[in-house]
Design a protein around this nucleic acid. Structure first.
Length: 271
DNA sequence: ATGGGCACCTGGCTGC
DNA sequence: TGCAGCCAGGTGCCCA
């Protein structure tokens, strides 16, 4: 599901309700996520104050007094802030009950999401340690991308999905960024010029920023902390638009499969 | 080191 | 109406 814009939208939505609150209770209704929720986590976390809600790539970090809860929404996860007695629905996995009377609830039908706890610096956690720079931060620039892509034979689309090289970009925004950069998804990463990388970096940053402003993209499951879907779907240029006219040149959009995932592009606008 | 493929899940849609 | 098959915002892991 959620790519960076959806995770960031979630972060903003939950942060104002969580920051400064104390966790009264942790209810694990179904700990079967990508990794089983540690049965000891509830006791460790209960009573701690939430200091901040941060994001690293597509991970949400709930910073507590003595550690950090690391959340990932997988393909279908969402977080909502609700009154603590709100009736439970299918696929609600866990709830953090706050001293405000509200709770943070994780729902995830496909269970690819995760909820982990670490006492150490989360940046050093095995899942986060090797992640590429933040795409909206200063270290993600044309020189970086050009160096990362050098001598790589994979298609640029797959490069964008490799979290060790580029973070935050998932299947939707990879196609959208390549369209904006006028680069075909099949192009070998190693064949990108510095100028291509410049356009691609700008396109990635632009599409992520615009999607955040729209509250993300909802295809099916995703809702923000307030329960509302994202509005960026209407602004997509190529994703899920196979056969329909390019919004720039009217040429029919094409779809192809790369690494068992769909890519979309305009054969006229992109080379 | 790099790249390819699979695995983990549920649910919604399509077509027979 | 039922059911098989395919597809979906991610990513860790195993293998060549």
């Amino acid at each position: 599901m959620p790519e960076l814009p959806e995770v960031e939208t979630t972060r903003r939505g939950i942060a104002r309700h969580l920051t400064g609150r104390r966790i009264r209770e942790v209810r694990v209704h179904d700990g079967r996520l990508r990794w089983p929720v540690d049965p000891g986590m509830a006791a460790t976390v209960t009573g701690q104050r939430l200091l901040a809600v941060q994001r690293r790539a597509k991970y949400l970090l709930l910073r507590l007094e003595r550690g950090t809860i690391i959340l990932h929404l997988g393909m279908s996860g969402s977080l909502r802030v609700l009154p603590q007695a709100t009736r439970r629905l299918a696929h609600d996995h866990l709830e953090l009950v706050l001293d405000s009377g509200q709770m943070l609830r994780l729902n995830d039908p496909r269970r690819f999401g995760s909820c982990l706890y670490t006492k150490a610096d989360p940046a050093e956690h095995a899942l986060l340690r090797k992640l590429a720079p933040e795409p909206l931060g200063p270290d993600f620039d044309a020189a970086y991308l050009h160096a990362a892509a050098r001598r790589r034979r994979v298609a640029v689309k797959q490069l964008l999905l490799n979290g060790q090289l580029v973070t935050g970009v998932g299947n939707i925004y990879a196609s959208e960024a390549l369209f904006r950069a006028r680069i075909r998804p099949q192009r070998r990463a190693g064949r990108l010029s510095l100028g291509d990388c410049q356009r691609l970096v700008r396109a990635v940053r632009a599409v992520l920023a615009l999607a955040i402003r729209a509250g993300g993209t909802t295809l099916r499951d995703y809702v923000g902390a307030d329960g509302n879907p994202g509005q960026f779907r209407q602004k997509l240029y190529v994703y899920e638009r196979a056969g329909r006219p390019c919004r720039v040149c009217r040429t029919p959009i094409r779809k192809l499969t790369q690494a068992q995932r769909s890519s979309y592009y305009c054969p006229s606008c992109q080379s």
